[in-house]
């Protein structure tokens, strides 16, 4: 059994202690490494088990809750650094796949950002209100279900009308599978996974112009630290 399969089975058992022990045994050193190379593949492996008819959606719910708990535990108590900027994270209305977004939130906090994480399903109206009041530098959106794509443009357009012109980042399962550019605005930055996201954060700190996947992005050096 690979480490990924082992974690997946701990999550499916709903045993947070066992899952935690499994993560501690993993030789990967940094949190981004654990998110990208262990937890994300474990959740996807769970998707594979469902497709192979070995588990049910109810099992996935239990695994999700356990994974969520582990994530909270992992990202708790990141030391407060001087703020690199403000970022808010949300899923489109109706979208319940928030685990990836939560990892991204944690990644930004690791890099010293002040963040607000809204988790699943945030109605556009509320998202815009919050953005107007809190004035984030970055708004991160996550989308996993094809059925939610039509709403994406509405969100992206509303955010690009904000007076402070925050950078709008788009990620989630679909970003890695399809070209999502037709569904958002020209200035939306599409990021396919955590290494790309981390590269974006580093460029942002250095004040560089960025455009997401339209240009090849060098693989990230960060996953070693």
């Amino acid at each position: 059994m690979t480490h990924i399969e082992m974690l997946a089975s701990c999550l499916l058992e709903g045993d947070p202690d066992k899952a935690w022990a499994c993560i501690e045994k993993y030789s990967g050193s940094s949190k981004p490494d654990v998110y990208h190379n262990l937890m994300t593949p474990a959740m996807r492996h769970i998707g594979h088990l469902w497709e192979s008819n070995e588990i049910t959606v109810a099992d996935e719910h239990l695994a999700t809750a356990t994974c969520d708990f582990i994530l909270s535990k992992l990202s708790f108590g990141s030391e407060k650094k001087p703020s690199a900027g403000r970022a808010m994270f949300l899923c489109l209305d109706g979208e319940q796949h928030y685990l990836g977004l939560k990892m991204v939130d944690s990644l930004f906090r690791e890099h010293g950002w002040d963040t607000r994480y809204f988790g699943p399903s945030l109605p556009l109206e509320y998202a815009v209100q919050t953005a107007e009041a809190w004035k984030p530098d970055v708004i991160g959106l996550s989308v996993s279900m094809v059925y939610h794509l039509p709403q994406l443009r509405e969100y992206a357009e509303a955010f690009s009308r904000l007076p402070e012109k925050p950078a709008v980042l788009l990620g989630g399962r679909l970003a890695d599978l399809y070209d999502l550019r037709p569904y958002c605005t020209g200035d939306t930055v599409i990021l396919r996974d955590l290494p790309e996201t981390e590269t974006w954060i580093r460029h942002h700190v250095m004040g560089g112009q960025q455009s997401g996947t339209t240009e090849p992005i060098p693989s990230s050096p960060v996953f070693e630290s």
Partner: peptide, 13 residues
């Protein structure tokens, strides 16, 4: 049941 679980998670957040 699932909705209840979700609402507890949201409350925590």
């Amino acid at each position: 049941l699932i909705e209840k679980l979700a609402s507890i998670q949201i409350r925590l957040a």
